[in-house]
Simulated scan of single mutants.
Amino acid sequence: MNILQALFFPPEQPGGVSSMVPYIQDRFTKLGWQMELFSLPKRVRGKGQEDIVFETFDITEFAGNPIVDKYLQTFRDYIWWTRLRNKGSYDIIHAHHPIAALVMKQLYPDTPVMMTIHSSYERELILNGKIAENGPEHLFLTKLYGELEVKLDRLLTVSESFRTYISPYIKDPSLIKVIPNGFDEKRFKPIAHENAVPQLITVCRLVPAKGLDVLLRACAELKRNGHPFVLHIIGDGPIREELEQLAVELDLYDDIIFYGYMLHPEEFMPFFDIFVLPSRAEAFGSVFAEAALCWLALVGTNVGGIAEQIDDGVNGLLVPPEDPIALAEALEKLVSDPIYRYNIARSGWDKAKKVYSLQRVISQLKKVYLSYKTEV
C-alpha cells in the first residue's frame, strides 16, 4: 500500500506526533509499505487565495475574527502548497491535523482520508488566555469536529478521555477508534546513576496550559520543607520571562535551570530522577511515556491522557490540577525516599514498554489501513 502521512508541523519538530510519525514511516518502510510524509513549511504564509466552503456550518458568520481569519488563511496556504508540491496518488491518506485532513479530502476526494485527532487547539487557546470559552473562536474550532466527522472516512484519537471530550461536538463518537501514541523504545536509554541531590525535570512549551507556575509554587513549598532539589526546565515559549521572574520572587532561581529549546531532550532525560508536569489539560501527554522509558519517576495531574498513563501510586503519582500543595506533597514522597522512587520509576518503565511501544501502534494502524482497504 502507498500511504501519505499528512502533518501540519514539519516532522523535524520535536514533541508528540511530529516526533512519532517519522518512526512510524521507518517501521512501515521496513515492512515493504510505501509511506510519504507531507507538511506545510513555516515559510509558506499568505499564498493561498481560493474560497473555502464547509458543509456543516457557514464560515462567513466568523468573518473578520482575527484568529479565525488566520486559521482559514493557513487552510488556503495548505491547499496552495499541496497543489504545488504533492503530485502523488495514494491508497490511503492519514492526516494528523484538521487543516491537513480537510485539505486532503478536498484535493483527493476519491481517496480514503482518515485523521488522528491528537489535541484540542481550542482548549489550548483558552488555557493560554488567547480566546474566551464559548466565544466565537471557540465555537468555530469546535464546529470543525463535526466537519471532520462528515467529510472524512475515519476518525481516530489518542485517549479515551479525549474521545469523551469531543463527543458533544459530533454525532457518533462510538465510531472513533482510540490508538494511544507509541514510542520507539530504542531511542530511550536509561542510565544507572546516583544523584546526591534529587534532579527534577520538565519538558514542554512554556505556555500557561502546562501549569509551570503551579510547579514553581510547589517547588517553593518543597524548599520550605527542607528538601533539596534541582529543577531542570527544557523548553521555550512566551511566558519564559514571567516564569523566571516568578522563580526569583519565590527564592528559587538558584534551584532552577532554564535550558530553552532542545531538539532531542530524551537524550538528556535519563540522567535525572523525577519527571513532573502539572498540565491543566492534556489529550495524551507523550512526554510522560517518553520520561517513563527513560526510567524516571512520574508526577502529573489527573487530567486527560495523563490519568490514563499513570496509575496513581503504582507507576507514578497523580495530583489535582491547580494544587501546588498536593504537588509538593507528591514530590516530597519521591525526593525523600529513593527506594520508593526507584520502584515507581521501574513500574512506569514496565507499563510504557508494554502499552506504549511503537510496535503496538504499527500493529493497530496496519489493521486499520488493511481493514479499510478491504471495505472499499
Rank of each mutant, 00 (worst) to 15 (best):
A283M: 10
G305I: 07
F57V: 05
V248T: 08
Y145C: 03
G285D: 11
R27P: 13
A247W: 12
L84P: 00
D323E: 15
P98C: 07
R360Q: 11
D77P: 01
F38Q: 01
G304P: 15
Q13L: 03
I131F: 05
K30F: 02
P190L: 11
L175D: 01
T157H: 06
T142I: 10
S89E: 12
V368A: 13
T116Y: 04
I344M: 15
I176K: 08
S371V: 00
E55W: 00
G285E: 11
C204W: 05
I310K: 00
M104K: 10
L4S: 11
V230F: 10
I233D: 05
L141E: 10
N2T: 04
D69A: 12
G32A: 09
L318K: 02
E266I: 07
Y121V: 14
V103F: 14
A209N: 12
E308P: 12
I52W: 14
K42Q: 09
K105G: 07
K354Q: 15
F75L: 04
N343F: 13
P10G: 06
A132L: 07
A330G: 06
R360I: 05
L102F: 13
T301D: 06
A326C: 10
H118S: 03
W349A: 02
E149Q: 11
Y145A: 03
P208S: 08
G260C: 08
R163Q: 13
N128K: 00
A196D: 12
L327M: 12
E332M: 08
L206V: 12
L293A: 01
V319C: 06
